[in-house]
């Protein structure tokens, strides 16, 4: 037996003085010295187990045990069974409830971000209101009303009267081909966009061609992005010197320094002619769609680009 092996087995349970270990111990002085040292150390260590125990230890232990609730171990056992059996289902239930709550909140989120409900639809002008609406057509200053947006069409009492020469129904007006096309087409697109977004009620409202178009700056910018540009024009009555400024689609505005004539007939019809009295069929539709809703008083007006 080698020394390393002896040192490994000298602690084995049982006598090491017999067999191979004993023979090696008898022949190897170094291992004998190591073994004696080991036994000495163990003797001292075993002696350490004979220390005194504090006199109050037993009383302290039993005091803590008796402080446990009566029947503690049995009751604890029952509750442990309860915990073991129900811990899984309860945890699953809590998790399910948490996920459900999160899902509900998640679903409600888009509703919080929804825009405010649309304004209540405006009723179509009654025939009496149409008749009454003709009353303010006394001066040219009454023509231009603030642009109220496609959805914010004028109140019934100010609704435009149906032009005898023009289609009066909403559907009909939308189907009329307009010359100069860009503005009406754009307005129509706005109307249909609004109609599709806000439901069939808006389809009862006046069509784009019946709405005065004095587009706001923002709307002009939006149209400019689609290639539709506006030109500020001055509309001046021969009878009344106060000019009215309107925004006309560039395709329907007089070119350069020229001016056109706008004749409003007694029946409300509008005719556009150049300085020589030639009808301007190309600009007719665009200008008419802007001016007709303004209900201009019958007479002759000069239309030209506004200075500045």
């Amino acid at each position: 037996m080698r020394c390393e092996e002896f040192l490994r087995v000298m602690d084995e349970d049982g006598p090491v003085q017999s067999g191979d270990a004993g023979a090696h111990l008898a022949s190897c002085q170094a291992c004998r010295r190591a073994f004696e040292e080991f036994l000495s150390l163990r003797r001292e260590l075993r002696a350490m187990s004979e220390g005194e125990t504090p006199a109050d230890l037993h009383g302290l232990i039993m005091a803590r045990v008796r402080a446990e609730p009566a029947g503690g171990p049995r009751r604890a056992g029952r509750f442990r069974w309860f915990r073991a059996a129900w811990a899984g289902p309860i945890a699953a239930l809590v998790l399910f409830a948490a996920l459900g709550g999160w899902a509900v909140l998640h679903e409600l989120q888009p509703f919080r971000k929804m825009p405010p409900p649309p304004a209540p639809p405006i009723a179509r002008p009654a025939p009496q209101a149409e008749a009454k609406a003709k009353a303010p057509r006394e001066t040219a200053t009454n023509w231009v009303r603030p642009y109220q947006g496609l959805n914010g069409a004028r109140p019934p009492e100010t609704a435009p009267p149906a032009h005898p020469a023009e289609p009066s129904g909403a559907g009909e007006a939308a189907s009329v081909p307009l010359e100069g096309g860009a503005f009406p087409a754009n307005a129509e697109s706005r109307r249909s966009a609004s109609a599709s977004a806000e439901g069939p009620l808006l389809q009862q409202l006046p069509t784009a061609s019946a709405i005065p178009h004095n587009p706001t700056q923002l709307e002009q910018e939006e149209d400019a992005a689609q290639g539709i540009f506006y030109v500020l024009c001055s509309l001046q009555s021969e009878d009344n010197g106060s000019p009215i400024v309107v925004s006309l689609p560039a395709t329907a505005a007089p070119p350069g320094d020229t001016h056109w004539w706008v004749v409003v007939k007694q029946n409300g019809g509008i005719q556009i002619t150049d300085a020589r009295g030639q009808a301007l069929a190309a600009a007719q539709g665009g200008i008419e769609s802007v001016l007709a809703p303004l209900h201009p008083s019958p007479g002759r007006y000069s239309l030209q680009r506004a200075s500045g």
């Binding site: 232990i61 803590r64 045990v65 446990e68 171990p73 049995r74 604890a76 056992g77």
Partner: peptide, 11 residues
């Protein structure tokens, strides 16, 4: 230690 033993000795 004895407190824990007391609580779980039943098992």
């Amino acid at each position: 230690t004895f407190l824990r033993i007391f609580r779980s000795l039943k098992d």
